[in-house]
Design a protein around this nucleic acid. Structure first.
Length: 941
RNA sequence: GCGGGGGUUGCCGAGAUUGGUCAAAGGCGCAGGGCUUAGGACCCUGUCUUGUAGAAGUUCGUGGGUUCAAAUCCCAUCCCCCGCACCA
């Protein structure tokens, strides 16, 4: 069958225009049952790649299915602009940064437009516009009238978010506190991830400051591992560095100058009053916290004044740096001499084993240095790796030794917190923050950590709120169901969330306008906004106030009052309220699995805070991350395809079905290029088949094989519906396309002359199933075969009767007979069979098999059968047969084997290429004996 | 370490909640044949090993166990992936 390829581009355009012109996907409340589904709006700093598309298509397919099932489907879309990435990128363009310009250019932005991207607002126009265009060209069945952008650039949405936050505040869901942020001293501003030259993803990390009593004051050492204080043997300083004496909260501290500056940003009163050179401290002792022993101060090369206090406590048992530092010093008489240290004293310092952890002996630091061949404290790279490894196993598997006072036997994980707290309570320790890695601001200054006061938090840590959110989760359906545990875990684990920022686009916090609401916090209940988004623009934004939202979303107040505030009729206001009530709650929100731990759970939390239970979400779904030919998408691999890339290349329908076939569930789906490449031809071929076969064929009563085909169809249709309801699209395509097509092929093989009505029904069903994935080609076929209206809104064909399973068994039986004959011919290397004899099982074996199944054991079955006189005639054969039935436990289906074979005699003959005789008396090799129910005997000559 | 998910025949991926019909669907790839001017299209056949009668033998991360029977249940063990936060 040679097939002319379809002109996908023409077909796509044609139907997209028609859909748009006739507003096929615009959703308006009516008497039908509604189905409201949505997907998290994307952030508007670029075009969509096919990973995103995959997620969106999962919503899209369900929207199409539900629509055809008769639901009034609302499937909206919007654009997220909140946060700093856009602002930062715009600034980079304004500064003429080539890297950023190249990013835009590579996306396909025209050169002459690039200067306009210096203005953040332009991003919020350009990308939503382009994204809309792209999604329309993907054939997404979205109600575009309801789209919007976020931030104050959209005053209506801005008012909505302000209303939401006032509600949250009223309900005491917003609390206030101090919060460490990455900070640029130069810019006097918090430095968000995307404003960094280096250090994306680094966050403030808490160090414990240990106070070593020294003279009238303290030497301060910073550590990430307060639990190791029991293993302290000495203190490290940089001999050549000049430390400062500083007055900190009434005490005198010796710390690095850099540290003193940082501490002043961390809620400490710091006054530098003098200085002291590192070498002046060497050889002296200071009293160590926890162990309350005097330990000696020694020189080292690895003290970094920019990190912590520039002074380090030494735990050679568990810190590779300390171990190797000590080791170096002990073997360097010159150095000892230089600082007037006693060789004996230093040599006598030994590591103290304090933690036992999995896979390590008592002194892990020593062990790993030896294992990795670390020979000097200057071997920074290896040491960093060693530290990481020791820390991980120590922290997670370690248990404190008996020499750790009251913490003996405690896990390191618990002891760390406990010991730190104890030291702080005793006044022997304090805290400071450092970035978890090097962070450089775009102004080229290195960043530090500042504790910001008056930070607002959403109180996700509140147990009552958690409880309510658990209730919401319990009422919700999840796709796939196994993600429920993950959600439960996240609800419990989530803590207070810093919900305001100083920079970026967004909505200001209504009661404290210095603050901007952060992007994960202004996107939690906006699904409600979709229900009125297409009408709210009619109102002057200045008039949109809390009373308006109170009425529309919560039914508080009166329509009349609201109407006069917004200068509209009461009926308009009531209409909005009705529309919200009609669509809400949403029936499904679906997204990538990464959003479980933030957005989706936030969404749930916020719904419980603001809406009554009957407006809480009904279902959420997630999916994995799209892989491209088994590889992660990444710009370095150059396999980040945008929707335009692939659609131009393969055609939209092919891309759609390729994506939907790539996987389901939470596992990462895999886009297979080789599969996609074959799909276009398959679609073309289906178009030609459907359009030429429709309305052809024989009429009148159905024959066996017609009924068989009908049964298979019905059975597949049932499975497809089930798969679709569970968002298992790969399975749906598997059954609804590949399996269905296989059935068609067999049907055609079995009968040269198909039944007209049945074939028509088949073409309709197959095209409808395909229409979810490949709507353009499907519409084209629908039109070509003369159906009225759009297939997109046609009534879904459900199974019109229950499938008759025996039909399927019967045909399976026939296939197995043919396969057996062919196998015999093959294995016996029969050149050209002249005659094929088939013998069906004698009646008594059917009877015996039936009894065997009923009785369940050999003995009683035999006993019962032997009561029958006819049975007794076969005597020994019966027992032999029974034994084999029992052994295989194979139950044959009760079908008329002889009838089936006779009906298909001609077909068998063509398949095996020889005349066939059924149940002949001619049986030269006594094959007949071997026949059993479900398994004929065969003789070939 | 904790929480979650996995390890299936060349690759991808079903099957596991209800043990047998599982040498294990389907897709892709590969091989042979048909159709054909040709075919990367389409259709058929094969694709763990052996095999002159439809069979047998070894397979479902590894090692045990339960059972007449295990990819499926139990125990142990190894390995992989994701998250562990303020990041859109």
């Amino acid at each position: 069958m040679s097939v002319e390829p379809l002109d996908f581009e023409r077909i796509e355009k044609k139907w997209q225009e028609k859909w748009e012109k006739e507003h096929v996907f615009d959703a308006t409340p009516d008497e039908r049952e509604k189905f409201f589904l949505n997907i998290p709006y994307p952030y508007m700093n670029g075009f969509l790649h096919i990973g995103r598309l995959f997620t969106y298509l999962r919503g899209e397919v369900l929207a199409r299915y539900k629509r055809m099932k008769g639901y009034n489907v609302l499937f909206p879309f919007a654009f997220h602009c909140t946060g700093s990435p856009i602002v930062n990128a715009a600034r980079r363009i304004a500064n003429g940064e080539q890297k950023q310009i190249a990013i835009l250019r590579n996306m396909g932005v025209e050169d002459e437009l690039i200067p306009r991207f210096a203005d953040p607002e332009f991003w919020t126009q350009y990308f939503p516009e382009k994204t809309t265009e792209h999604l329309k060209s993907m054939g997404m069945s979205i109600d575009w009238r309801r789209s919007f952008i976020t931030t104050s650039l959209n005053p209506h949405y801005d008012a909505f978010i302000k209303w939401q936050f006032r509600k949250l505040k009223e309900g005491n869901f917003v609390i206030k506190g101090a919060h460490p942020v990455i900070w640029c001293k130069e810019c006097q501003n918090a430095v968000s991830d995307h404003s960094r030259l280096e250090g994306e993803g680094e966050t403030p990390q808490e160090f414990t400051l240990l106070k070593f009593a020294f003279g009238d004051g303290y030497i301060i050492a910073a550590t990430l591992r307060p639990e190791t204080v029991y293993g302290q043997t000495n203190i490290w300083v940089d001999p050549d560095y000049e430390y400062v004496r500083a007055r900190v909260g009434g005490e005198e501290w010796i710390i690095s100058r850099e540290c003193a500056e940082k501490l002043s940003d961390q809620e400490k009163d710091v006054e530098v009053i003098g200085s002291v050179k590192g070498r002046e401290l060497i050889g002296h002792t200071a009293r160590a916290p926890a162990i309350e022993k005097n330990i000696i101060i020694l020189p080292s090369a690895f003290c970094d004044p920019c990190k912590g206090t520039g002074i380090v406590t030494s735990v050679p048992s568990d810190a590779p740096d300390d171990w190797i530092g000590l080791h170096d010093l002990q073997n360097d008489p010159e150095e000892l001499e230089k600082y007037g240290l006693s060789h004996e004293d230093i040599a006598s310092i030994e590591p103290i084993a304090i933690i036992r952890s999995k896979g390590w002996g008592p002194l892990p630091a020593k062990e790993i240095c030896e294992k990795m061949g670390i020979e000097s404290q200057l071997d920074r790279e290896k040491l960093t790796k060693a530290k990481k490894e020791i820390y991980k196993s120590g922290f997670y598997t370690g248990v404190m030794n008996d020499n750790c006072g009251e913490y003996a036997g405690m896990s390191v994980e618990d002891a760390k917190e406990a010991i730190k707290q104890m030291l702080i309570d005793q006044g022997r320790a304090d805290k400071m923050y450092e970035p978890s890695g090097e962070v450089v601001c775009r102004c080229l200054s290195p960043c530090t950590v500042k504790i910001v006061r008056d930070q607002y938090f959403l109180a996700y840590g509140d147990p009552e709120w958690k409880e309510k959110t658990h209730q919401a989760l319990d009422r919700m359906e999840l796709y796939p169901p196994l993600i429920r545990k993950q959600f439960e875990y996240v609800i419990d684990w989530l803590n207070n969330w810093a919900c305001t920022r100083k920079v970026g686009l967004g909505t200001t916090l209504p009661w404290d306008e210095e603050w901007m609401i952060e992007s994960l916090s202004d996107s939690t209940i906006y699904m409600a906004y979709y229900t009125i988004a297409h009408k709210i623009d009619e109102i002057d934004p200045a008039d949109v106030d809390d009373a308006f939202f109170d009425y529309v979303f919560l039914g508080i107040g009166s329509a009349k009052d609201v109407a006069s505030r917004i200068k509209k009729d009461a009926s308009f206001v009531e209409g909005l309220r009705d529309e919200f009530n009609y669509w809400y709650p949403f029936d499904l929100r679906t997204s990538g699995k990464d959003l479980i731990q933030n957005h989706l759970t936030f969404c749930l939390f916020n719904h419980t805070a603001i809406f009554p239970p009957h407006h809480w979400p009904r279902a959420m779904g997630v999916n994995g991350w799209l892989m491209i030919d088994k590889e992660k998408m990444s710009s370095s691999k150059g396999n980040v395809y945008t929707s335009c890339d692939v659609c131009e290349r393969y055609g939209t329908d092919v891309v759609r079905i390729g994506l939907m076939y790539s996987g389901e569930g939470v596992d990462d789906p895999n886009w297979e290029t080789s599969f996609v490449e074959t799909m276009g031809e398959k679609l073309s071929s289906w178009y030609h088949f459907a359009t030429t076969m429709y309305g052809t064929g024989r009429r009148g009563e159905m024959q066996f094989i017609d009924l068989w085909f009908e049964t298979v169809m019905l059975s597949i249709m049932k499975d497809v519906e089930e798969a679709l309801e569970g968002m298992m699209y790969r399975s749906a395509i598997q059954r609804g396309y590949f399996d269905l097509h296989r059935a068609l092929k067999w049907y055609q093989r079995r009968t040269a002359d198909h039944h007209c009505e049945l074939m028509d029904r088949f073409i309709e069903v197959q095209t409808q199933i395909l229409s979810l994935f490949c709507p353009h080609v499907a519409e084209e076929i629908w039109e070509a075969i003369g159906m009225d209206g759009f297939i997109s809104v046609s009534e879904w064909t459900s199974p019109w009767k229950a499938p008759d399973e025996t039909m399927i068994y019967a045909e399976e039986f026939l296939k197995s007979v043919i396969d057996d004959i062919k196998e015999i011919i093959r294995v016996a290397k029969i050149e050209q069979p002249s005659n094929v004899y088939i013998y069906t099982s004698p009646q008594w074996k059917w009877e015996a098999a039936r009894v065997a199944q009923e009785e369940g054991d050999m003995k009683s079955a035999m006993a019962r059968l032997m009561q029958d006189e006819d049975m007794r005639k076969h005597g020994k054969k019966v027992s032999k047969f029974l034994a084999s039935v029992m052994k295989h436990k194979s139950a044959a289906h009760d079908i008329d084997e002889c009838g089936i074979l006779n009906e298909a005699k001609q077909f068998i003959e063509t398949e095996v290429g020889a005349p066939v005789t059924i149940d002949s008396d001619y049986d030269p090799e006594s094959k007949r004996e071997h026949a059993q129910p479900g398994r004929v005997a065969i003789y070939i000559e």
